[in-house]
Design a protein around this nucleic acid. Structure first.
Length: 858
DNA sequence: GCAAGGTC
């Protein structure tokens, strides 16, 4: 039987390239979770059937089992010893199922994952999904390729090897360490600080071995700025007039920090009055053309020159790549493979309206190979692949594409050459100079004009000439602090210290912005926030290792031992985790030191917020704190009561809850169709009745036993039998859409309406009525609550100008004609579900007395 | 709600 070969690449684009090369572009392609390319060709000396497909990056990622997911019941320090499990990174993509299906009947598996440790790790994920075993006679091969070119693909096919388990295990080790350390610290500090300070606006206070040192760089610069003491300095600048030029000469001492001494030198020059030419020198200098463009350099230029953040840059680059305008945008390499087709790449640009002429010139007049760079063996430098115009790309993408083109054309251009003339002078025993520059070959700077040298003409001087000094300036200046760290500088620092990868650097920077640790200022400079500063200063004071970049290099170094087979995977993981566990427990013990910084920076809960409503226990006013998580704080009882996180709250007519005496709040959800409803702060946090099956704000799919902060029972879910705000009093009839109850919105005048206490169903009542209220009566026909409408005198539909009308909104002809369903299906007593389900209230029914009972159909 | 690493 002919061998069947399954080949798997790391991404769809590479599967396509491999299949095209090996089939000579004679393959059939079908869709699946990812595309599968099929063809027949030779494999290891015999005719074989090939299937080439791909994963989409990692198939699995690590996490804790469910038992360790609950923040309230898991002690973060237990996470270091907790088991971990791998689950599908993207379950919806069904990559595992896809691989398992495609592997069926295959005799050989060839792994074409990227040739780095992550790729090696994904190899074993793929093996697991395919179900290939060393024992079952089916062979597993690893293809090692240094670029996705025909030459390298064929070379890899001819030297198939085995996947490297040690390298894969080193990635497993990193994953486990990153997970446990990051999650333990994050949960601990979030739980400790959250809710402790009124104006500390943070949902989660995260820690991570990449994001925290990244923040550390920004705070370091901030601290340099705050510690900076400016110093005065003086610079001596003599001027001469010569052959029609006025020249400002530079002092050899540049600047002095002593006013008297500087003045003394000035007097000497003035006394002398003559500048002697002591030396004239000329040098041919050259500025090298760039090497190929890699991700990090693209991110830096985009941030500093185009004003694009790394996140946006990568999004734009990704789009340019998938549309075929540029090559793969995530690469470390600045060197092109020797076989790279520069002619082809230039040829693709010759018809470009902006760069065409330049590309054509390079093609016809010869081009240089790019300056030597480093080949990381991943992907070639970022290169334009197809011509594009501003109209077809849109503004931002065009700017990025334009830079990529300019850079690429620059790499193939000549170096920039220029003459540098230096004239040295002497006067009063002091040395001065002036410098002129003149480009002889513009080279790459003609396509990258911002890198051009600044040209300056000098008249010709002869050694020994004496020139009268026209004036002497003593310029006073102040040393100035550095500016906030620019994003581009941060990227350089991250690269230098090995924080993140080409693909993840942008994620870490985005992270510290989103977590409110830094803010991006004009010119893309990163200003740390009070939270970011307090965190880093806290780590520095407890254990500075926690925020230094060495923490990443330490982990990298340890897992490299695993990758090289010099240490056992589980020994290394255990060893590293034990060190972090100790650091963690010391951190927990010393958290007061960090808290002292928070206390200085943030105001305690009791100082912030405004008085809103009375506590039912002490009858004093509680403070409303609007920053997330929104909550009430009773300073006397030292209790926190969460309120709904969306919408606004205000005092509800100083009404109180009959159960606990707390003053009621009126909560209004945002938007014109947002519900308004009363809620008792105490009941909302501690629902007094069981049997309420859907708490307000609870996760849609989650079970209600695990409630989030403040997720609970507003009055519209409360089955209290006599309180005028409960669903018993305010409920009108069953919701036609769900199992909920339509409740009167008590503050919806003049656009009176009912809303469902479970879903989004909305019913509008007669508009313009003075008052609409529920009564204690129910409809004898359908059991809905009878409502009372007080119509407006001018618009009343009643005979003889009467305004008062009672009735059932389903069975009363007049009322039913005036109500309208705004969201939902039908709303009719004749409808499938309208009649007979009205159990909105039912005070008369003894069955309703037990609040544990459902008030739905039974 | 949490990390960092792939990739879309």
């Amino acid at each position: 039987m002919a061998p069947k070969v399954l080949m798997v690449a790391e991404k769809p684009s590479i599967a396509l390239s491999i299949a095209s090369v090996l089939s000579g572009a004679q393959m059939s392609t079908r869709r699946g979770s990812t595309e599968v390319h099929e063809f027949d060709a030779m494999f290891l000396g015999s005719r074989a059937h090939y299937k080439v497909t791909s994963v989409i990056g990692h198939v699995f990622s690590v996490d804790f089992p469910a038992a360790f997911q609950d923040w309230t019941t898991t002690n973060p320090s237990d996470l270091f010893q907790a088991p971990i499990l791998k689950k599908e990174t993207n379950p919806k993509a069904h990559i595992c199922r896809h691989l398992s299906q495609e592997a069926r009947g295959c005799t050989h598996l060839v792994l074409w994952l990227d040739c780095d440790r992550e790729g090696e790790n994904i190899c074993f994920e793929v093996i697991e999904c395919t179900g290939f075993h060393a024992s079952d006679g089916r062979r597993i091969y690893r293809a090692r390729f240094s670029s996705v070119t025909e030459k390298d693909i064929l070379k890899a096919m001819n030297s198939l090897a085995e996947p490297n388990r040690d390298e894969a295990l080193s990635v497993d080790a990193r994953q486990e360490i990153d997970l446990k350390v990051g999650v333990a610290f994050t949960r601990f500090q979030t739980s400790y600080f959250n809710g402790k300070y009124g104006n500390l606006d943070a949902r989660v206070i995260s820690y991570g071995p990449c994001q925290t040192p990244t923040l550390g760089f920004c705070v370091d610069r901030y601290l340099q700025i705050t510690m900076f003491k400016p110093e005065k300095f003086w610079m001596l600048h003599p001027y001469i007039m010569y052959k029609g030029y006025e020249l400002k000469l530079e002092w050899e001492r540049s600047r002095l920090f002593d006013a008297d001494v500087s003045a003394m030198f000035r007097n000497r020059i003035i006394e002398d009055g003559i500048m002697k030419v002591v030396r004239v020198s000329e040098k041919l200098e050259s500025k090298a053309r760039p090497s190929g463009l890699n991700t990090v350099n693209l991110l830096k230029v985009a941030s500093s020159a185009l004003g694009f953040g790394p996140q946006l840059t990568m999004q734009l680059a990704e789009r340019l790549y998938t549309q075929g305008f540029i090559s793969y945008p995530r690469t470390e390499s600045t060197a092109y493979p020797s076989s790279f087709d520069f002619k082809g790449a230039l040829g693709a640009l010759v018809h470009n309206p902006v760069f065409g002429a330049y590309a054509q010139k390079l093609l016809t007049e010869s081009y240089n190979k790019p300056r030597a760079g480093t080949d990381a063996g991943d992907h070639p430098p970022i290169t334009p692949m197809r011509s594009a115009s501003e109209d077809s790309l849109g503004n931002d993408a065009w700017k990025l594409y334009q830079y990529i083109c300019q850079h690429f054309l620059g790499t193939l251009s000549p170096d920039c050459k220029y003459r540098r003339i230096k004239v040295e002078f002497e006067s009063g025993g002091e040395q001065f100079q002036c410098v002129g520059q003149l480009a002889t070959v513009k080279g790459f700077t003609s396509i990258m004009p911002w890198l051009a040298i600044s040209e300056k003409n000098l008249p010709e001087f002869a050694v020994g000439e004496k020139i009268e000094i026209s004036k002497v300036e003593l310029d006073e200046g102040n040393t100035s602090p550095p500016d906030y760290l620019s994003e581009s500088e941060l990227i350089s620092l991250m690269e230098k210290h090995g924080i993140g990868t080409d693909a993840s650097i942008s994620v870490h920077i985005n992270n510290i912005c989103e977590r409110n640790y830094v803010q991006v200022q004009a010119g893309r400079r990163l200003a740390p926030t009070p939270l970011g500063i307090s965190l880093i200063r806290g780590y520095q004071c407890i254990d500075s290792d926690l925020c230094l970049p060495d923490i990443r290099s330490f982990i990298e170094h340890q897992i490299t031992l695993v990758a090289k087979g010099q240490a056992d995977h589980s020994m290394v993981v255990q060893h590293v985790l034990e060190q972090f566990r100790r650091k963690f427990s010391y951190f927990v013990k010393q958290i007061d030191n960090m808290d002292a910084l928070f206390e200085a920076q943030f105001s305690p809960l009791s100082d912030s917020g405004r008085l809103l409503s009375k506590c039912g226990k002490c009858l004093r006013y509680m403070k409303y704190i609007s920053t997330q998580p929104a909550r009430l704080y009773c300073g006397t009882c030292e209790e926190v009561y969460y309120v709904p996180q969306k919408g606004t709250v205000k005092l509800y007519k100083e009404l109180t809850c009959p159960l606990d005496n707390f003053e009621l709040l009126l909560c209004s959800m945002p938007g014109p169709e947002g519900k308004s409803f009363p809620l008792c702060p105490y009941c909302f946090n501690c629902p007094p009745f069981e049997g309420i099956d859907t708490f307000f704000g609870a996760p849609k799919t989650g079970d209600s036993t695990k409630l989030g902060k403040g997720v609970g029972m507003p009055c519209f879910l409360c089955p209290h039998t006599t309180c005028p705000h409960s669903v018993i009093a305010q409920g009108v009839c069953a919701c036609p859409e769900c199992s909920g109850t339509l409740v009167l919105d008590p503050v919806s005048a003049p656009k009176w309406r009912l809303y469902c206490n479970m879903c989004n169903c909305l019913v509008s009542l007669p508009e313009g009525a003075h008052r609409i209220s529920t009564t204690q009566d129910k409809c004898p026909e359908c059991d809905s609550t009878i409502i009372e409408v007080d119509f407006n005198k001018k618009t009343t539909p009643l005979k003889d100008g009467a305004t008062l009308h009672k009735g059932c909104i389903l069975c009363d002809e007049l009322l039913h004609s005036l109500v309208e369903m705004k969201h939902g299906r039908s709303f009719s007593r004749h409808g499938r579900r309208g009649r007979g389900r009205g159990r909105g209230r039912g005070r008369g029914s003894t069955k309703q007395q037990d609040p544990k009972m459902s008030f739905r159909d039974f």
